[in-house]
Design a binder for these strands. Sequence first.
DNA 1: GTCGTAGTACGGTAACTGTCAAACTACGAG
DNA 2: CTCGTAGTTTGACAGTTACCGTACTACGAC
Lengths: 125, 125
Amino acid sequence: MSSQPSASASVASSSRVLEHPDRSAIRLEAVLHALSDPMRLRVVRTLAAHGSEMACSDVELDVSKSTCTHHFRVLREAGVISQTYRGTSKMNGLRRADLDAVFPGLLDSVLAAAEGEERRLAAAH
Amino acid sequence: MSSQPSASASVASSSRVLEHPDRSAIRLEAVLHALSDPMRLRVVRTLAAHGSEMACSDVELDVSKSTCTHHFRVLREAGVISQTYRGTSKMNGLRRADLDAVFPGLLDSVLAAAEGEERRLAAAH
DNA sequence: GTCGTAGTACGGTAACTGTCAAACTACGAG
DNA sequence: CTCGTAGTTTGACAGTTACCGTACTACGAC
């Protein structure tokens, strides 16, 4: 049902391999659902701003480690991020190419929307 | 906290008035959550394709009336649609101007994404 | 006034979801 | 080998959500 991580992710460097949906198995509702949670949207915005892959622990969320694991898994299973183990760490990256191919402009419009909303809310306080 | 329906909706023609969030109270997460459900996405696509306002009963969903009421309310409370009573019917319209002002390009990219996904899934069968 | 329709409120069910602590595994450093 | 860290799994809890049937309200037609 799944394949190896997309081309944007490096080859796994441990025996632990993570399942990712094929580009063709990415569904809009799962993507929108994944992005509708504030924690996960924050992850995605952080990865987008950073540009290159980041370890889970480098993305600062104010929740427990088990909750972090939960949220990263939802993003991976929706096809929004790719994940690869590097020793004890797991490196995460946006599946930008896949998402832009399947839903052109969606990711950027969500990121821009979040940016704009954050600025408006900051200005309102 | 809410105001009268946005300018895109007509004046209410009955004593029943529905609360709608101000443009400034529309939140991205609520919008994405509202659009991540297949029933609600169908409503929004139908309203988008139709162009002008439609009655609840004119949007064909394969669920009970009480479930329809639930979904339309989620869309209204997220600020995605405006609703106005007309006799026994309730007229619904996309809050296109508000959504485009608050999250430029988001609605169109979601609609295009849904369109593209539908075509790909239809071609795959 | 009655009648039919659109839509609602309520209570219920079942599944989902986000949260966590605790115990765990996998890995690299030493 | 031990140790520390990253991340996981499990079970639990509480809240949310989509679904429904039923009884209801509001409205217009007559």
